[in-house]
Simulated assay, not measured.
Amino acid sequence: MSSNLSHPAVVQLCYENVNGSCIKSPYSPGSQVLLYAAFGSASVLPVFGNLLVMTSVLHFKQLHSPTNFLIASLACADFLVEVTVMPFSMVRSVDSCWYFGAQFCTLHSCCDVAFCYSSVFHLCFISIDRYIAVTDPLVYPTKFTVSVSGICVGISWILPIVYSGAVFYTGVNDDGMEELVSALNCIDGCQIAVNQDWVLVDFLLFFIPTLVMIILYSKIFLIAKQQAIKIETTSSKAESSSESYKARVAKRERKAAKTLGVTVVTFMISWLPYTIDTLIDAFMSFITPAYIYEICCWGAYYNSAMNPLIYALFYPWFRKAIKLILSGKLLKNSSSTIRLFSE
């Protein structure tokens, strides 16, 4: 007689026959292939996009400007997220296992936090740069110089790295959460717990620069609208050469500000769900299902892939630079002096 009782699903472990091993995800082999393909494309393709951005800005002399140096540094932060964070997070998300050791788990968490906050700071400084350029385009070159841009780049890298290293390597991130850490602790796992105090600090580190960006870009668009109206009302009148030049400069700076505004909006859309989710979890006993957390987390990671696409859509000089790089003309001695756009 056949039994109608259903057999319980076999629990797979990351390492069979090892006591305390983490439980492996229940995905079928087909589902795992699809997930690896989706996450892998998000990890590999943007690497080339951000490499193209960095190569374009650093190689072509016409692109050597304070704003573009910030953009190249932002591309470097995105590149490092894709190289040092996303591939290993992909394995953890799909298999629910960590095969890379406890020490690298801590390093991976540090890189994750450091490079992501580096992106936030870069975008904040870029918004300040664009605000100065739009509000006073003729004086802007003397205010936001290459040296000032270098200081902004240094701050955008040093502060996040020091912060993430201090938090994760001292262990203050999970103070008061010993029971949860013990429950999460298993062999070949990499679940980093962060207590309420440090979740609040993380939220403020995201929220304050984002608020600055929102305020500055709101002002930028208001000023851009006023300038556009002024140009339209004076277009029928005879303009002096200085007024005409100022109008052209203002138009160029407004266009650049709008493009970088799209970058900021994309960043907020990508990162806001993850930031809110971590805040809710910390104060409501981690109620978010694992798959929701993974969706929010990878939504944030995907932001690293978006910036090169935005540049390709809005910057003609970037499209031209890509053609020159892919055609091999970059190897010519005089390639660095090629003009990508008219002054």
Rank of each mutant, 00 (worst) to 15 (best):
V249H: 00
E243L: 10
K246E: 13
K246T: 05
T263R: 01
A300W: 02
S285R: 11
A238Y: 03
A290Q: 14
S242N: 09
S285V: 05
E253C: 10
L272C: 05
Y301N: 09
C297D: 06
Y291F: 09
Y274R: 12
I287W: 12
K251D: 07
Y293T: 08
Y245W: 01
I295T: 12
I287F: 06
S235G: 01
A256Y: 11
E239F: 04
L260R: 08
G261W: 00
A282R: 01
L272M: 15
S235Y: 03
D281K: 03
T263F: 09
Y274M: 14
W271Q: 04
L260T: 03
V262M: 13
T234L: 10
T278C: 04
M268T: 11
S240K: 00
I295F: 10
W298H: 14
S244I: 02
S270G: 05
S240E: 06
L279W: 07
T234F: 04
P273A: 06
T259D: 02
T263Q: 12
T259Y: 04
K255Q: 08
S235M: 07
S304E: 05
M284C: 13
I276L: 15
T266L: 09
K258A: 12
E294Q: 15
V265I: 14
E253V: 11
A282K: 00
C297N: 10
K258G: 10
L279P: 00
K255T: 12
C297R: 14
P273G: 14
A238N: 07
D277N: 13
L279G: 02
